[in-house]
Amino acid sequence: MTGAGSEERLSPALRTEALEELLTERGLVDPDAVDRLITQYETNVGPLNGAKVVARAWTDPEYRRRLLDDGTAAIKELGFGGLQTECLVVVENTATTHNVVVCTLCSCYPWAVLGLPPSWYKDPAYRARMVREPRTVLAGMGLELADDVRITVRDSSSEVRWLVLPERPAGTEDMSEEQLVSLVTRDAMVGVAKVVAP
């Protein structure tokens, strides 16, 4: 990095403010549009969207088939899409196969269905270690998988964004789609947790 000295002294808060002033003065950014985007991602776009997708797939076999076939098209049916989900691939976790998502190079993440990534997902240690030793990292996050469960690490670094369709837990056969939504967690849709019955 060049000019590191000046970058060090100026806090990112000041640099951000300076950048926004310059962009606004030049007509490149509308602060109101930035406000709207922030509000959108702080309040409307989050893992609840993904939970609705999962619950639909659990209760509607035809939808599940379409979701696994073309994730982008299937989430669009529920009104979700946009930046970072142009090429969404959904992979299914079962009793014997487990998928977990990471982005080794940056922190790509399917915003439209999961919101913005949590801090641990962006952490360099998670990004590096999940690829090398997924079983150990998952255990460290509280998910102990039996030795005969095959783990596949899905790297979001290309254009593909991954969403995990978690295994529907036993004992939820009588639950409605709406009730199931509340069980599905963000962590399960990244593949670092399982969905548990209430």
Binding site: P12, T16, E17, L19, E20, L23, L28, V29, D30, A33, V34, D35, L37, I38, Y41, L83, L116
Partner: peptide, 9 residues
């Protein structure tokens, strides 16, 4: 703000 500016741009 940094996030919102990038997406808005």
């Amino acid at each position: 703000r940094a996030f919102g500016m990038a997406v808005a741009l």
